[in-house]
Each structure stands twice: as C-alpha cells, then as structure tokens.
C-alpha cells in the first residue's frame, strides 16, 4: 500500500521510515514524502493511481494542508480504481479546523503529536481492506 506523507518538516521522513521499518521491510507499506502541498500535487500528478493514502499536515508554508485536500478531492474525485484516502495530521486539533477538514472530505483527522501505535493500527486496517 502506497502512502504519501506531506509535511514541511524534513525529519518526518526519518521518523516514519523508522517507525514503520518492519512494515516497509515486509512490503506492507511503501512511503513517499512531499515537503509542501505543491510538491504533493506534482507527485500525485505522476503517481495518481499508485497512492492509496495521503497523510497531510495542515500547517505548511505556501499551500496549506486544507487547500491540498480540496485540490485532491476536486482533481481525483473518481480516479481508477478508487479515489485516494486523505488523512489530516495537525498540531491544531481544534473543532473548527476538524470540521473544515471533514467538510472538505478528509477521511480522518489526527492530532500531533502522532500516536504511532494508533496510526499503525489504522493503516493496517486500511491495508487489509486494500488487499
């Protein structure tokens, strides 16, 4: 299962790669990383059909995570075979932001600091559905 992580913090990559090292090694998950909303859109443009899940930060310089979400939902409303799931990750776990994200069509909303155990479970469930 291919997952695109969007965050302006570069160290997120290292963290994810270590947190999910077993899953990556076993081939359960494949991670790609983008460091801005714009970069994520470019990546999606090239790999639209591969990416199953997008994990995006909201607070980023330039295009915010919510804008990215809107773009994705508009552009990839029904790509073959299924539209990618979008999970928002933010330090601002307040209600207005959550509601806004949900309105825009986010599939899930997680707050930072990320509970990797919970995240792993969610991803595993998703992966099993995928298969």
């Amino acid at each position: 299962m291919k997952i695109l992580v969007v965050d302006d913090e570069a160290d997120v990559r290292v963290l994810f790669e270590q947190r999910f090292r077993r899953e990556i090694r076993s081939g359960l998950f494949t991670f790609s990383f983008a460091y801005s909303g714009e970069e994520a859109l470019t990546y999606l443009h090239d790999h639209a059909s591969e990416v199953v899940l997008i994990l995006s930060d909201i607070n980023m310089p330039g295009m915010s995570g919510l804008e990215l979400l809107r773009h994705i939902k508009q552009t990839y409303a029904a790509p073959p075979p299924t539209p990618p799931q979008v999970m928002m990750l933010t330090a601002y776990g307040d209600d207005p932001t959550r509601q806004q994200a949900m309105q825009l069509g986010a599939n899930d909303f997680l707050t930072k600091p990320v509970d990797f155990v919970a995240l792993k479970e969610k991803l595993t469930v998703l992966a099993s559905h995928e298969n």
């Binding site: 913090e9 160290d11 963290l15 947190r19 330090a91 600091p113 990320v114 990797f116």
Partner: peptide, 13 residues
C-alpha cells in the same frame, strides 16, 4: 511543540 514531538518520537523509536 514541534521539536519536542520529534524528541519524543525519536526517543521512542
């Protein structure tokens, strides 16, 4: 909070 999250996460991992 951001760097602290990293500190916690990297310690955990």
């Amino acid at each position: 909070q951001n760097p602290l999250n990293f500190v916690t996460n990297f310690s955990d991992v």
